[in-house]
Design a protein around this nucleic acid. Structure first.
Length: 1185
RNA sequence: GCUCAAGUGGCGGAAUUGGUAGACGCGCUGGAUUCAAAAUCCAGUAACUUCGGUUGUGCGGGUUCGAUUCCCGCCUUGAGUACCA
């Protein structure tokens, strides 16, 4: 609902003297008159047929909110309106439409609260919006208006959705194609050679298999390729509200509204495969004229990174949890439940062998023995010194310590032998003293033992029959994406996102509790919260190990919430020496930080730069730089089949379902759980009626409450739910589309004339006709706020590229030039509260104290007070209260600082006049608890409020309503002032007091045209008289200077400076007493884009019957600005001291002569001889020395 | 943290290629007009000043005859974005 705010005026406003109105600038009447004229004559209606060149100016789609406009909103509209009007003067056929993005949450929220249908609320809001827009005098072509909530419009949004469903992305042609071409491929050759952007879990099938699949199976497969598809997505689910919340609707893990708990939940939702377009969305940025910062945001959002994907095999699984893994489990994985702990120890022992162990290992690994041995290997829960897995022979080398544990060793041997192993023991002395004998014994033992392969059939398989070669994809590896494959030898651990699918499978018994607790604690935190907290490092060890592709060393696998499940593979290879986050993590958990950078100190921090890197401690990568090493690492990984070069994008597929009522319904029904599209000829599928706009008790979206919401495939109509039989009548989709659906293509709809355009419109037959699309092409100028940088502006680019691929439109990019207007900030007003609190010194002596008295103190006292400096005023107030009690006999009291807060209080800006004086009475009666406030006023009995610049918002009571401004100063003043405030793209504070400047300018302009008797309109049109020639030369100079500057300014969107230029022109012409038609008439055209009403009125007084809107822009002529002399600044060592008027015709030498001869020069030099004199003709003279 | 902007009077801001810093407007001061006010008009308004000048565009350097403008380093503010591997 619109809240019209009253402006409190400190002084009487305009007296509307009927006699005076004839000659005075009566903006209210003038503006109403011309707004009516434009509407009646359809002055700004665009035509699709014109000899003129086309120009399309568009504002970002407004949502008609109930609060109405504040002065910040029209800023961009005024700028685009000026540009549109300027282009009309420049001879363009201009399309400048407006409409409403009228689906959305606020209306739904209001409906939930009041039961009022959102369509009604929306209609009311649009009326207010329209009235407010009209009164500012915009040159919109309203005949082409669109509303996203209009079934005639969303019919085509549904149609585009169907087209997306019927499309897949072919990487070979690099564009979207109809799924028909995909089905043809499947039928003839299967899917093995299909290169598409699709889900990554698709099994390969042949053409025969495809043909044998059931229809459902085929649909299921196709869904994985379609550009819009159903997928499980994790969402923030709030059970209490029965709805999904956006990240920013969650504060501290609970819903912003109501403070209910929020959980992450998987939900089947429609998604848009925008990721297919990642590269094209990135490349397209090069072709469009947008600001760098905006392009930067989109680049970051798309987040392209080039690197490689590496697979790390998982080294051990706890028994019984290795699910499908048991078949594939490599034979060398012989560890038991405690593998993860023992492996750490085994690794240590491998690194520090005893002398005897080292000696024997030398012999065993050399070619002297045929069989393959492993050292310090896990067998069950034991670490054995050496083992030949094929033959099941274990060799133990015992030091002195074993003399004391003969019993234990015996048990150990027994247990191992039970497991079909043969154990042979040697002492250190035996090994070192007679290695050859020991070897002989081992060879003899080996000959007696059967190979595992032969043993296989005998007993139940204890280990896998085949020792698989490393690096084969067994389905049990961790894939990571890295931009730094060159640092692969610096990996000392791996980190998985806590949500990673593998976590539950690899976690060991011993670590389970810790890991579960950690997962639970991170699940509570929202993604945003998790990401915002950079300082606290947290994680847990899974107990599992992965194998390094090159060194084959085990790498511990951790989980940590700094890794996000949604990005890349949800896992990272952690290189602490090269990545600060990995470094911090390693430091925190005491994980080793190997250095692989030559001559780089990593004792304090990681070295994350790719520049000046020389790789070391990295085997075959040693001595290489980043580029070479990365390339080589990928090459070697590919050889192993454990990695490949890859480009990754951050851009995720966009969720397209909303559990809301007030949005576009999907043209979708379900047969056996598979989504079916309704034939486009039956569109639109209208939003059904519901009795309540809340989710159902079962947690279904609001459409679950509709009684008539089923699809009959025989009558092709929406029918009652009772009739659902799942043979001919099926349930319809309950979700609705998101806000960005309708706004991703609306700019095309405007190209097609509105339905009111006498039979010309093809809006019924198509979303926009081919000829309209080819005539208007794309938006030439798009103006709006930067908040849409990564939402609307990315999604609409995506849809346009899709529509182009499917040949529905012919352009690749929707918005050629784009400007972000800066926000207009509010100037909040404050009073400063201070309460005197008094306490008993002896708490036992309860003496009743009066209520605390609250004061409003001046800003200066407040500012000192919060710093702890109490000025005289504060101290005297305190003293006054203390003595009050003391006089009453209570001496055991003192000032209580804690009960004496300094509090700034927002004041409604309408209670303050332009001199910052507060209307105290009004303030006191504003809120009940303000009544008793005592004001400390200045000597004039006034209270001066403090001012601070903040965002303009209702809650800060600093909203300024354009209605009030238009009433008091007029739309032209508002338009000029909004532009005058500062550069369009910058944020700037609004200060209503300043508007008197531009308003005064318009009055002065009015006067310039009314210099006749009784201030009547008076201009002369006869050629200039002889005596007046010089005067008119000055006037022409002013005019052409203005033409030049204003034209340049508009082209550069520097509207603030052109307002100054107008002021200068009017000031000059007033001083010249100029009243000549040849000057004053073209001046109006210059001004008309900015202040169209006054321009039309004065233009009309010149006798024109037509609107000024298409009058040709005056032509700038250089001749009027040619000067014969220049007032040269004469500077000494670069500092200007005085100026001299010197003819421009003179040469450098002549100028220098004149300057040097001048007495002021001599006085300035004071006898010194200048070293050098620099003369820049027409610019400056600089004397050095 | 990263990326991008931006730091100029009491305030909003101007100076478009390196060439008179503070245009234009607000506010403020003084004056005219008025019984008075509003409105209007005129004059002044960066700071310091011995009224000759001197200093001044966030800070410190540099390039240049000359720097708000170009370069290097730093500080501050704003916006966007974010453990993005």
């Amino acid at each position: 609902m619109c809240i019209t705010q009253l402006i409190w005026r400190s002084s009487p406003v305009f007296e509307k003297d009927p006699k005076a109105s004839k000659m005075n600038y009566d903006f209210n009447n003038i503006e109403q008159k011309w707004q009516d004229y434009w509407a009646k004559n359809q002055t700004f209606k665009a035509s699709n047929h014109s000899d003129k060149p086309k120009y399309y100016v568009l504002d970002m789609f407004p949502y008609p909110s109930g609060a109405g406009l504040h002065v910040g909103h029209p800023l961009g509209y005024i700028a685009s309106d000026i540009y549109a009007r300027y282009k009309r003067h420049k001879g363009f056929n201009v399309l400048h439409p407006q409409g409403y993005d009228s689906f959305g949450l606020p209306a739904e929220q209001y409906a939930i609260q009041t039961g009022q249908h959102p369509a009604i609320t929306t209609e009311t809001n649009i009326k207010t919006y329209r009235r407010q827009l009209d009164q500012i005098g915009f040159s919109f072509d309203w005949s082409r208006e669109v509303r996203t909530s209009d079934p005639n419009y969303y019919k085509w949004t549904q149609w585009i959705f169907i087209e997306l469903f019927e499309s897949w992305y072919n990487l070979e042609t690099d564009k979207a194609e109809s799924v028909d071409t995909l089905i043809t491929k499947f039928t003839s050759e299967g899917n093995a050679d299909v290169k598409a952007v699709c889900d990554d879990d698709i099994a390969t099938f042949s053409s025969e298999e495809w043909q044998q699949f059931s229809s459902e199976k085929q649909q299921e497969i196709l869904l994985k390729y379609r550009l819009t598809y159903l997928a499980e997505t994790e969402v923030n689910w709030c059970p209490a509200l029965g709805t999904v919340l956006a990240n920013d609707e969650i504060v501290n893990g609970v819903s912003e509204r109501g403070g209910h708990p929020v959980v992450r939940k998987k939900m089947t939702q429609w998604s848009m495969r925008i990721s297919a377009y990642a590269e094209r969305l990135l490349q397209g940025l090069e072709t469009i004229d947008w600001t760098e910062s905006l392009k930067e945001s989109q680049k970051n959002w798309i987040g392209k990174s080039v690197g490689s994907e590496v697979k790390f095999p998982i080294l051990s699984f706890p028994q019984g949890e290795a699910k499908a893994g048991s078949d594939n489990r490599p034979g060398y994985m012989t560890g038991g439940n405690n593998s993860h702990l023992l492996l750490e120890r085994a690794k240590e022992m491998r690194a520090n062998p005893t002398q005897a162990e080292a000696a024997l290992w030398e012999c065993l690994r050399s070619k002297k023995i045929e069989a393959k041995f492993r050292q310090q290997h896990l067998i069950g829960d034991f670490i054995v010194d050496f083992v030949c897995l094929d033959k099941g022979l274990i060799i133990e080398v015992d030091g002195k310590i074993h003399e004391n544990q003969i019993e234990e060793d015996q048990k150990r041997t027994e247990r191992l032998e039970n497991d079909f192993y043969k154990v042979v023991r040697f002492s250190n002395e035996e090994v070192l003293g007679n290695t050859d004998a020991v070897l002989k014994t081992i060879i003899a033992e080996l000959e007696q033992l059967e190979s595992v392969k032969d043993k296989k059939h005998e007993s139940e398989q204890h280990w896998s029959e085949q020792v698989l070669p490393l690096g084969k994809d067994l389905g049990w590896d961790i894939a990571v994406f890295t931009t730094r494959p060159d640092t692969i030898f610096g990996v000392s651990f791996m980190t998985l996102a806590p949500e990673h699918d593998l976590v539950s499978q690899i976690v060991t018994e011993g670590q389970k509790a810790e890991v579960d607790a950690y997962i639970k604690s991170t699940a509570k935190r929202s993604e945003r919260e998790r990401m915002a907290d950079v300082k606290s490092i947290s994680g847990a060890f899974t107990g599992a190990y992965a194998e390094h592709p090159f060194t084959k060393e085990p790498i511990p696998i951790w989980i940590g919430d700094y890794v996000l499940a949604g990005y890349g593979t949800g896992a990272v290879m952690s290189v602490p020496c090269g990545d600060q986050r990995d470094y911090d993590f390693a430091k925190h958990f005491g994980i080793p930080i190997p250095n692989i950078f030559d001559k780089v100190d990593i004792s304090e921090a990681a070295y994350s730069s790719k520049d000046n890197v020389v790789i070391t401690n990295s085997d075959f990568l040693n001595g290489m730089n980043y580029k070479k090493a990365a390339k080589r690492a990928i090459f070697e990984l590919e050889k192993l089949g454990q990695g490949t070069g890859k480009t990754n994008y951050r851009l995720r597929d966009a969720v397209f379902s909303r559990q809301r009522y007030w949005g576009e319904p999907f043209p979708v029904y379900y047969v056996n759980g598979m989504p079916q599209m309704i034939d486009p000829k039956h569109l639109p599928i209208r939003l059904p009626e519901v009795e309540k706009y809340l989710p159902t008790e079962e947690g279904e979206p609001p459409l679950g409450r509709a009684d008539v919401w089923a699809w009959c495939t025989e009558t092709n109509q929406v029918v009652s739910n009772d009739q659902v039989n799942d043979t001919t009548i099926f349930s319809l989709e309950l979700n609705t589309m998101p806000g960005w659906a309708g706004s991703s293509w609306y700019f095309f709809r405007y190209m097609e004339p509105g339905l009111s355009a006498d039979g010309e419109s093809k809006r019924e037959e198509t979303f926009a006709s081919e000829e309209a699309l080819s005539y208007w092409e794309n938006v030439d100028l798009y103006i709006g706020g930067s908040e849409h940088a990564t939402g609307h502006l990315l999604y609409s680019r995506f849809w346009v590229k899709f529509l182009k691929d499917r040949e529905f439109v012919s352009i690749e990019e929707p918005f050629k030039k784009l400007i972000n207007q800066g926000m207009i900030l509010g100037t909040s007003a404050f009073v400063y509260g201070f309460s005197v609190g008094i306490k008993n010194i002896n708490p036992k002596l309860e003496v009743p104290l009066n209520k605390i008295q609250r004061y409003i103190i001046p800003r200066e006292s407040y500012l000192k007070g919060i710093e702890g400096n109490y000025d005289e005023l504060i101290l005297s107030l305190v003293e006054k209260h203390l003595s009050h009690y003391k006089d009453a006999g209570n001496v055991n009291i003192e000032w209580d600082l804690e009960l004496s807060p300094f509090v700034p209080i927002h004041v409604d800006v309408t209670m303050v006049n332009s001199s910052n004086e507060l209307d105290i009475d009004k303030f006191k009666s504003w809120q009940e608890n303000f009544k008793t406030l005592q004001f400390v006023t200045n000597e004039n009995g006034k209270y001066i409020v403090g001012r601070e610049v903040e965002k303009m918002s209702k809650s800060k009571y600093n909203v300024v309503n354009p209605d009030a401004i238009c009433e008091q100063y007029g739309a032209d003043s508002l338009r000029l002032y909004e532009m005058f405030l500062g550069p369009l793209e910058q944020a700037k504070p609004w200060n209503t007091a300043g508007i008197t400047g531009v308003h005064g300018f318009l009055k002065k302009l009015w006067k310039l045209y009314h210099q006749g008797e009784n201030a009547s309109f008076s201009v002369i049109s006869s050629p200039p008289l002889e005596g007046l020639e010089e005067v008119s030369a000055e006037a022409f100079k002013t005019l052409h200077k203005t033409i030049k500057k204003v034209e340049e300014d508009i082209e550069n969107f520097s509207f603030n400076t052109s307002v100054s230029t107008f002021m200068i022109a009017v000031n000059e012409l007033t001083a010249q007493k100029c009243n000549h038609k040849d000057i004053l008439e073209p001046l109006l055209i210059l001004l008309s884009p900015y202040a169209p009403h006054i321009a039309e009125e004065l233009w009309n007084k010149f006798g024109h019957a037509e609107s000024i809107s298409t009058a040709p822009f005056p032509k700038f002529e250089e001749q009027y600005l040619v000067e014969s002399s220049k007032n040269y600044p004469i500077s000494f060592n670069g500092k200007t001291r005085f100026t001299l008027e010197i003819p421009l015709s003179l040469t450098k030498e002549e100028v220098e002569k004149i300057v040097m001869a001048h007495e002021k020069t001599q006085a300035q030099l004071d006898g010194r001889v200048p070293k050098k004199v620099i003369v820049v003709p027409g610019k400056i003279v600089n004397i050095v020395g």
